[in-house]
Design a protein around this nucleic acid. Structure first.
Lengths: 243, 243
DNA sequence: ATAAGTTAATTTGTCATACAAATATAAAAT
DNA sequence: ATTTTATATTTGTATGACAAATTAACTTAT
């Protein structure tokens, strides 16, 4: 009796619960900002204990699918997963992949050059006034010589992300966010030296103007220049490190 | 006393533990296939209870960073995260992103066309005999008319992945895996109809020959043909669905 | 002596219960 | 009317116990 046909449940209960809830989120039964039942209620519904439910919820929380708050109006809520929310999640995955698979800087930068060039092409075609405004703001902020290295890096990331967004292709943006992060460790290096900072920002300024003038070829040429420059800096740093 | 300077610990204990362990994995203190201390030991070290430790471990398990086994030789082990191991993790993230952000098929397919063309370019240059062998095997399997729709889909994914791998750029492969998955729901549609199956496999055969002959332009042209064909099928299906 | 079966030990998986901490709501006191 | 206080709700954490899986050691039968 109770002979279930097919693949038997081998995975742990907490995983099964997590999978079911994720399925509900994925197929739209649970929409963004919806509140899940309380942990006790979930425990009764799934006929498992509260610790098991909690383990399941933590699995979803690790994927950024839900957030939790305490108190009467608290509970677990479905997150709305935009590009930003998912990016930090993807970033750790990408960082891990790069570090555990000996991905060379050349592989990263050539991929990024190819994709960002495509972004530039689309951005030149579809950029709106708002896109240009955002780009300019990030550029101005990055030109400020009083900001800290950390702020400089953050502004750098924002600038490149803004270009990706200017392509008005969400899929492309999503992937570019990953690639931008993957190259960030190299970019970070240069944030501490004023001379290099100036070179980067001036390149950004020229890129901005090129996109503004819808000059795709020029924009891509400058991008290539910048990526080559970063690669060169990286090689120099490695040589110094070996000494 | 016990006045800790700086940002106070606001996040939950299980998250703090998870973050510390993840940090250890990321910086290499915990290498692949290393075994973590037992849950009880971790509880003592971090001075928290076992349920808290378990919640932390489930967070890492959800990210595919660790696996757990019971028994004397059991415990939690660090996963080696290659392209395959991370792909299912990325797949759910991508699927969620697509469904929650109204990403159009056009955005997906145009991005994929652009990137896969780049793959073709590199594959034509760098493909080895082993790459060709693998491609041919997947092709032969896909041509078999007796396989189930599910098998057909799986073979389809494997074929495109093999092309990505033939580029010999790990970063590019990693990203392509994501894009292949993103377009899969559309590809799945056609697996149930023999007529469409034949069209797809014949296209794959021509792509294989083109890559074999290092004819980049031809390969890309066929790819464009295939993606347009899928898009067309999708539109027809939607129209039928509306009736 | 070898092979098979049995037992014991270890570790994750699950459960039950209790209490702490945060937080919003309603009631009470100033 | 405003502040304070009490209270209810919900997640966060702790403790202890037992179940299930799995390996290693041991025992027994051939």
């Amino acid at each position: 009796m109770n002979l279930e046909i097919g693949p038997i449940n081998k995975s742990s209960l907490s995983k099964q619960v997590a999978d079911q809830l994720q399925e509900a989120i994925l197929e739209g039964t649970l929409k963004a900002d919806d509140r899940l039942p309380t942990e006790e209620e979930l425990a009764q519904r799934f006929q498992v204990s509260r610790p098991t439910i909690r383990e399941a919820l933590k699995r979803l929380a690790a994927k950024n699918l839900i957030r939790s708050r305490r108190g009467p109006t608290g509970g677990s809520f479905v997150n709305h997963l935009g590009t930003n929310e998912l990016s930090d999640h993807l970033t750790t995955a990408t960082t891990l992949f790069v570090s555990m698979n000996d991905v060379s800087l050349d592989e990263i930068s050539s991929t990024r050059l190819e994709m960002e060039s495509y972004c530039f092409r689309l951005a030149c075609q579809h950029r709106t006034d708002e896109d240009l405004k955002r780009l300019e703001q990030h550029l101005i902020h990055q030109k400020n010589k009083n900001i800290s290295p950390e702020e400089f890096c953050a502004a750098d990331v924002r600038f490149h992300r803004a270009i990706a967004d200017a392509s008005h292709n969400k899929m492309l943006s999503f992937i570019m966010y990953t690639l931008i992060e993957a190259l960030q460790p190299v970019s970070n290096m240069i944030a501490y030296r004023f001379r290099e900072r100036e070179i980067i920002t001036s390149q950004h300024e020229r890129i901005f103007n090129a996109i503004n003038n819808q000059d795709r070829k020029l924009a891509c040429a400058i991008l290539e220049e910048q990526i080559n420059y970063l690669q060169q800096l990286h090689e120099e740093a490695q040589e110094n490190h070996q000494q």
